[in-house]
Computed example of a mutant assay.
Amino acid sequence: MTDFRPSRFQILPTVVKNLIIINSLIVLATFVLGKAGIDIADYCGLHYWRSHYFKPWQFLTHMFLHGSYNDVNGTIVHLFSNMFALWMFGSILENLWGPKRFLIFYLVCGLGAAVLHLGVVAYEFKAIEHAFMAYQQDPGVNQFDLFLKQHVNLRGGNPLSVQLYRINEIWQNDPSASLGRESVSAINQYLFGTTYQQMYLPGIYDEATVGASGAVFGILFAFGYLFPNTLLYLYFLVPIKAKYVVGAYALFELYAGIRNSAGDNIAHFAHLGGMLVAFILLKIWNKTNRNHFY
């Protein structure tokens, strides 16, 4: 049985403590800047590389954002859940590995999660782009309706997606209307965004991903990998071994990511990416230091 209690166990070790402080301060800054009309996610959230918002530093900075100034409750819940898990499992790992190795592990898991997430996003957008190219060859009322059913949803009340459905409604009521060119333009705006009355309306390429969940899922995996038989208490009552909790999380994230249901704005493959990178790192570290993993 592995003993993860070093001689000087810290309940709130240095890196975990500072990560919690930094993430909390940035959430506070999100609300303060939001009141001034500045959305920090436009600059620091992770964007698809074809978005005009994309910057390389977002692979790192997105890990310290947790929502939008327009959604106070959701942002606070997102922050609390991530920071609670970071403290619960990360504190043990930092005490085990030391601050330097723990910080490297945390950041690499977050970066790996971002890379996998963008890869999945690119794959999904490629399907939309191919469907859009095919539609432009033969823009018709039935083809337009099929495109919307397969590739567009009204999640979040995006005005550009609402515009598409308005065009479709008009076209369905009057199939003889010449709306082919208008529909093509509307789809292009839905993808790339547009400027309306001196205000930029973001397209789906401009959607930002924020949160430390990829890195935190890497931490969760590492805990389950190193201490598989440690009991975790579901709802503080039901004891379950850590390896089963991690396995259940991984299966759920895979199922939810593949299902990709409408209204689900959670980056499930980023969570899986964090777990995958954690597994690779643990294998590499264990191989290079067989006698003392930490």
Results as ranks from 00 to 15, higher is better:
residue 130 H to S: 06
residue 216 V to W: 04
residue 180 G to C: 03
residue 212 A to V: 01
residue 190 Y to K: 07
residue 228 P to V: 00
residue 252 F to S: 04
residue 260 N to W: 05
residue 82 N to C: 03
residue 38 I to H: 14
residue 147 F to T: 02
residue 76 I to K: 06
residue 248 A to S: 15
residue 85 A to N: 09
residue 197 Q to N: 15
residue 48 Y to M: 13
residue 272 L to H: 03
residue 276 L to C: 02
residue 283 K to P: 09
residue 283 K to H: 06
residue 242 A to H: 00
residue 207 E to W: 04
residue 19 L to E: 10
residue 11 I to V: 11
residue 217 F to Q: 09
residue 17 K to P: 06
residue 94 E to G: 07
residue 157 G to T: 12
residue 121 V to P: 01
residue 221 F to R: 03
residue 242 A to G: 04
residue 83 M to C: 13
residue 183 S to V: 03
residue 180 G to A: 01
residue 6 P to F: 08
residue 200 Y to F: 15
residue 4 F to E: 13
residue 46 L to T: 01
residue 5 R to V: 12
residue 108 V to K: 05
residue 284 I to R: 10
residue 260 N to E: 07
residue 253 E to S: 12
residue 267 A to H: 10
residue 145 D to T: 13
residue 142 N to R: 03
residue 209 T to F: 11
residue 18 N to W: 14
residue 166 R to D: 14
residue 84 F to G: 09
residue 86 L to F: 14
residue 42 D to K: 10
residue 33 L to W: 06
residue 126 K to S: 07
residue 119 G to D: 01
residue 191 L to K: 02
residue 153 N to T: 09
residue 260 N to I: 14
residue 138 D to P: 06
residue 283 K to T: 11
residue 261 S to K: 14
residue 200 Y to M: 10
residue 164 L to V: 00
residue 40 I to S: 05
residue 80 F to Y: 10
residue 235 Y to R: 13
residue 266 I to N: 15
residue 266 I to V: 14
residue 178 S to K: 04
residue 56 P to H: 06
residue 181 R to D: 10
residue 7 S to V: 15
residue 59 F to A: 02
residue 99 P to H: 00
residue 235 Y to I: 14
residue 3 D to Q: 03
residue 100 K to R: 05
residue 1 M to E: 09
residue 209 T to Y: 08
residue 3 D to S: 12
residue 267 A to E: 10
residue 74 G to Y: 00
residue 160 L to N: 01
residue 206 D to A: 12
residue 103 L to K: 11
residue 258 I to Y: 13
residue 150 Q to H: 09
residue 291 N to A: 12
residue 98 G to F: 00
residue 35 K to P: 11
residue 60 L to F: 11
residue 107 L to A: 12
residue 228 P to F: 08
residue 261 S to G: 06
residue 91 S to P: 00
residue 184 V to T: 11
residue 155 R to M: 06
residue 214 G to K: 11
residue 253 E to N: 13
residue 286 N to R: 10
residue 279 F to S: 03
residue 242 A to S: 04
residue 134 A to Y: 02
residue 200 Y to G: 11
residue 11 I to W: 12
residue 278 A to H: 08
residue 153 N to L: 02
residue 2 T to A: 15
residue 109 C to W: 06
residue 46 L to Y: 14
